[in-house]
Amino acid sequence: MIRVRALRKHYQVHERPPGVAGALRSLFHRTYKAVAAVDGIDFDIAASERVGFLGPNGAGKTTTLKVLSGLLHPTSGEVSVDGHEPRRRDDAFLQKIMLVLGQKQQLLWDLPPSDTFELNRAVYGVPRDEYAATLRELTELLELGDLVRKPARTLSLGERMKCELAAALIHRPKVLFLDEPTIGLDVSMQATVRGFVERYNQRYGATILLTSHYMEDVQRLCPRVIVIDKGKLVYDGALEALVARIRPDKRVVLRFTRPVDRADLADLGTVVRHGAGDTVLDVHKDAVNRVVTQALARLPVADLTVENPPLEEVMSELFARGHAEPSP
């Protein structure tokens, strides 16, 4: 469905020395520097896959999504989406895709979302009966109710995001690029949006490429992740395998019936936290059985759980390592 080969996107960035003198000098003599936002990445995504696109700020995620949706022309490399070359922006291609940008909105600010829907219906040439059916489904899946008849400026951020999604899906795109769709939303609204994306994927078999800073989004939605850092591909594969490779440790959380000396824990694993409430140990996954048995035998354990390390930590560790470890 999506095929990317040796994709590069460089920007010419105007550089100037700091301060007034520098600004003055740069008025007359500008120096430009090429910045590689995306620096040679390859990947393939099959139809109806859900893929998480991860990387720190400025890694090139949004640039890649914009190249894939035809907004930006690649500097070099080969990109194809369902057989189309995005940069040509032909109508058949644009009919199939949609880009949702969590930080920007397409809803007309002063009008109810239903008017934006109507506008999109006309632009995409969706027949009336099909439009009515789609809208009914979207209204039900997103629990829109009568939100669509209130002016967009009176909606809350979460309500507006739901309407943004509906506006983006009037033409039932086969490929959906979601850039930070849950940014700024509260926890329950994030869950609504996640649930919706999952159901949309299942119902229409749409291919989904998603970026998010909320690891929860990725964990819940994307069996596969592509990680880029400084414009280069760092990892492409199953999320679980990534976690296992970066952090082979499990996290053992203990609660005791009476205080336990820190020294008694040292031989069990790395102590992450040892406080009045609970104690957290990092333990290599192969040692978990032994540690749990020993702890139960030796220590006054009230409660014990074994968890995966938080994905946020896995990611920051991955990015801290930089490119030291090439992807398989």
């Binding site: 009919q95 880009l99 940008l101 397409q106």
Partner: peptide
Amino acid sequence: RKGTLDFVLIKPA
């Protein structure tokens, strides 16, 4: 200025 031209350019018209 706001970057919302993206939404215009992505429409099939």
